[in-house]
């Protein structure tokens, strides 16, 4: 099928999705990009956001990814996702609660980074970075959800 592009979504643990689709829109780190059959060879990083899988002119599936990499060839679009889930399975209230908890943790960690020294400080700084990354992902989830409900 020349007018379809093979879309593959892979997480480190398993192959999540592999199907022939009409178009996918991937949230690249420098802006969304759409992939149609015959796309030029292309590699990009992916920011936390939503992948839209098009079936004809309609959006068939919307999948949230927490970042990763995308490789595009004329026949194929492979997204290596750190974490992926259907947008419909996200729960806004739960995410907001998580986000509040994480922000509390960040304040606490910042304080520890400022106070401690040596190995303990490094550890706290490391944790702080991890928590901030988590917040970015959760925020992206939330904004993805808002976008959907706004439609």
């Amino acid at each position: 099928m020349a007018d379809k592009v093979q879309f593959e979504l892979v997480s480190p643990e398993k192959l999540l999705l592999s199907e022939a689709v009409d178009m996918v829109v991937v949230p690249g780190s420098e802006g969304n990009f759409g992939v149609l059959p015959g796309h030029a060879l292309f590699i990009s990083t992916v920011r936390p956001g939503v992948i839209d899988v098009y079936d004809g002119n309609e959006i068939g599936e919307r999948i949230f990814v927490a970042g990763g990499f995308a490789e595009v060839t004329p026949e194929r679009c492979t997204v290596l996702a750190d974490e992926a889930m259907p947008l419909s399975s996200l729960d806004g209230a739960a995410i907001e609660a998580d986000l509040r908890a994480l922000e509390g943790a960040v304040a606490n960690l910042r304080d520890r980074v400022a106070r401690l020294a040596g190995a303990e400080r490094d550890e706290a700084a490391h944790e702080l970075r991890a928590t901030e990354a988590r917040i970015e992902v959760e925020t992206a989830k939330l904004s993805a959800l808002r976008q959907v409900t706004a439609h």
């Binding site: 892979v10 480190p12 643990e13 398993k14 192959l15 490789e71 492979t78």
Partner: peptide, 12 residues
Amino acid sequence: AARPYAERMNRM
């Protein structure tokens, strides 16, 4: 199940 990811990562 983990092989596809590793393979593609390696290719890139």
